[in-house]
């Protein structure tokens, strides 16, 4: 097996609320690997810690505990100055393109900015490179002289992606890159991401709560619940044979855009508990339809399913009684 490009190990992030001084346990011991040219899809409800993990991966946040090894080097404890040099290789695309771009910079300057910081290109080389990148994200070069306010949502998201790939990064974190876009525009962006992955060989962490989209772009899936990875595995395995009861119910709640698709829904009651007041034992035990007494005592470990490519954290899996009636 090849060395992973990035290895996150027992990542943990706790925030302390101001005034009341409560601890928000946003991420609790998350471990996963990312490989060049592969896309990892991270799904989960809001409040499950998806974005926090994404931000720790590119070191926009410092983990409370755990490590992020990028090309074998632990970047979680590096001083900020040293991290800045790593930004060449670690880039991020944010959810809302309207607020992610400086409204007073022209598009060309936005795309050039990372080159200015991270390369020794002359200004004319930068300008050529910006045009080249704009073409590679299928952005009309006439738009380079415009301001973000003059562009549509899909065009803005292309600018954000162009900016992220300007330095040829090895890894890109995409935090809900398509959820604010219309359907037909979204399809174009997904096409573009696929193309970039083939051309640049960058590893991608695709964060989304839209299961349909995640399924379309990912090679590997991580399912997060209350800051724990409760299931991980190859995309097809997780979508076709979800093992954890939460993954099963999450997938069953998805509405495919096809009136003839059979829905085998098993709906959950209630909502994700607060990360301030974590349930003891399995984080899903408060909503799980298959819960039993020993679920509430200890955190279930990740267990291998079949050959170990797919793993899930449920104590019922070894007994084979983990299927929810969907």
């Amino acid at each position: 097996m090849t060395e992973p490009l990035l290895r996150a190990k027992m990542l943990t992030k706790h925030f302390v609320t101001p005034r009341t001084a409560q601890t928000v346990k946003a991420v609790n011991g998350v471990s996963f690997d990312m490989f060049a040219g592969k896309t990892v899809g991270m799904v989960g409800e809001s409040g499950s810690g998806k974005s926090t993990v994404g931000r720790m991966v590119v070191r926009l946040l410092k983990p409370t505990q755990g490590s992020v090894a990028f090309r074998g080097q632990d970047i979680s404890l590096l001083p900020d100055r040293a991290v800045r040099r790593l930004r060449v290789d670690l880039q991020m695309v944010f959810q809302d393109p309207w607020s992610a771009l400086n409204p007073r910079m022209r598009v060309k300057r936005i795309i050039q900015e990372p080159l200015l910081l991270h390369s020794k290109l002359s200004s004319s080389e930068r300008s050529d490179r910006a045009e080249e990148i704009a073409r590679s994200v299928h952005l009309n070069t006439d738009l380079l002289t415009r301001f973000p306010g003059e562009l549509s949502g899909g065009q803005l998201q292309r600018v954000c992606i162009a900016r992220a790939i300007a330095t040829n990064p090895a890894l890109i974190v995409l935090d809900e890159p398509t959820s604010s876009l219309d359907l037909s525009v979204r399809a174009g962006i997904l096409d573009l991401l696929q193309e970039l992955r083939e051309n640049t060989g960058a590893a991608m962490l695709f964060i989304s709560h839209d299961l349909g989209t995640v399924r379309l772009v990912s090679d590997h899936i991580l399912v997060l619940y209350l800051g724990h990875i409760i299931e991980s595995g190859p995309m097809n395995k997780v979508f076709d044979e979800p093992a954890h009861p939460y993954t099963q119910t999450l997938l069953s709640a998805h509405l495919p855009a096809d009136p003839h698709a059979d829905l085998h829904r098993h709906l959950l009651d209630g909502e994700i508990p607060s990360p301030i007041d974590m349930p003891p034992g399995c984080p899903f035990s408060t909503r799980c339809p298959l819960v039993r007494e020993d679920c509430r005592t200890a955190l279930p470990p990740m267990v291998d399913i079949d050959d170990g490519a797919q793993r899930a954290a449920c104590i019922r899996i070894p007994e084979g009684t983990n299927q929810v009636n969907c």
């Binding site: 359907l183 037909s184 979204r186 399809a187 997904l190 839209d210 349909g212 989209t213 399924r215 379309l216 495919p256 855009a257 096809d258 698709a261």
Partner: peptide, 11 residues
């Protein structure tokens, strides 16, 4: 176009 652009159809 709208129906083609849904993730299910795109696949």
């Amino acid at each position: 176009t709208l129906i083609d652009a849904t993730p299910e159809r795109l696949r």
